[in-house]
């Protein structure tokens, strides 16, 4: 049942794991912020990822620069996410089941719209020209683009950490989570800040979609492949914890790649078993605060 792998394969698998981990972080950081700060279980998050990837595909088809395409896709998704949050989700504040149903419904709607516009065929854009190929070091080849995904994820992680933990804006968001009515009395525009967080999360998901497209490709069903991964990451790491999302992403990146290589028959067991264990043994996640 267990497949043998060589040490060269281990290195490649490790790099792929780091790259996938970085991508999962870009995906789940937004999910974690939205769930941890606003308590909204956003089941559209996988759809945001896929729609963002499709946006990127089209922008690239029009000859746009890769990074510009990724940024623009993020901006477009911020606008769409912000609209859904303000117009619809806002009315369901604090009602978890209606939020689940609404976001799930929207996930299906987005999937159908994508199928209509981008058809059922897979799209696989090429990475930006300067990142094609590999660098050689210690007698091995390292795929450049995947290293870049990792670097971007780490940069985003640092930027988010500074934003949330070290700026006045971040402190205002956390105050709005601690005690929403008193935060408003103190003069904090809690509702606008939460919309901002939602937009940021949506933008990150779409950005991740474009970043992932060159190695995952984009196809119908990608949304509901990514959503459970974001859920697992957030449950492993703990909701609302950026460090947790980062560590959870890399754990999952490794489980995914090594699990598929070594135990191809047990891929789902390897993905979901750690999540089940955490849920039973440490429900707040590895780095999560106990929610009150």
């Amino acid at each position: 049942m267990m497949q043998q792998i060589t040490s060269a394969q281990v290195v490649i698998l490790a790099i792929n794991s780091f790259a996938l981990g970085g991508l999962l972080f870009l995906l789940s950081a937004g999910f974690s912020l939205i769930f941890g700060l606003m308590r909204i279980p956003n089941l559209m998050h996988g759809a945001f990822f896929m729609l963002g990837a499709y946006f990127g595909v089209s922008f690239l088809e029009w000859g746009m620069n890769f990074w510009l395409a990724a940024l623009l896709s993020g901006l477009a998704m911020a606008a769409i996410g912000g609209l859904i949050e303000r117009v619809l989700l806002r009315r369901l504040e604090g009602q978890v089941l209606p939020q689940v149903l609404l976001t799930l419904g929207f996930a299906f709607i987005i999937a159908d719209i994508c199928l209509m516009i981008w058809t059922g065929d897979p799209w696989q854009p090429t990475p930006p020209p300067e990142l094609r190929g590999a660098v050689q070091a210690m007698g091995m080849f390292f795929p450049l683009y995947r290293l870049m995904v990792l670097a971007v994820a780490v940069a985003v992680a640092i930027a988010l950490w500074i934003l949330v933990d070290w700026t006045r804006l971040g402190a205002m968001i956390r105050a709005g989570v601690d005690d929403p009515p008193i935060a408003r009395v103190v003069g904090i525009k809690v509702s606008q800040l939460f919309t901002l967080v939602f937009c940021l999360g949506a933008a990150l998901a779409a950005f991740a979609g474009v970043m992932g497209a060159p190695f995952l490709s984009v196809y119908p069903g990608l949304d509901f492949e990514m959503l459970p991964l974001a859920l697992i990451v957030v449950i492993l790491g703990g909701t609302g914890s950026l460090l947790g999302a980062l560590v959870g992403s890399f754990i999952l990146g490794f489980l995914y790649n090594f699990g598929q290589a070594m135990f191809p028959d047990l891929a789902y067991v390897i993905l979901f078993l750690p999540m089940l264990l955490i849920l039973v043994l440490r429900p707040q996640g590895l780095f999560g605060r106990v929610m009150t």
């Binding site: 006045r168 402190a171 205002m172 956390r174 105050a175 989570v177 601690d178 005690d179 008193i182 935060a183 103190v186 003069g187 904090i188 605060r289």
Partner: peptide, 15 residues
């Protein structure tokens, strides 16, 4: 009703 998870200084700055 201070903001429990914020530092003392952050409690002041947000207001």
């Amino acid at each position: 009703r201070v903001f429990k998870s914020l530092t003392v200084r952050e409690n002041l700055l947000v207001a």
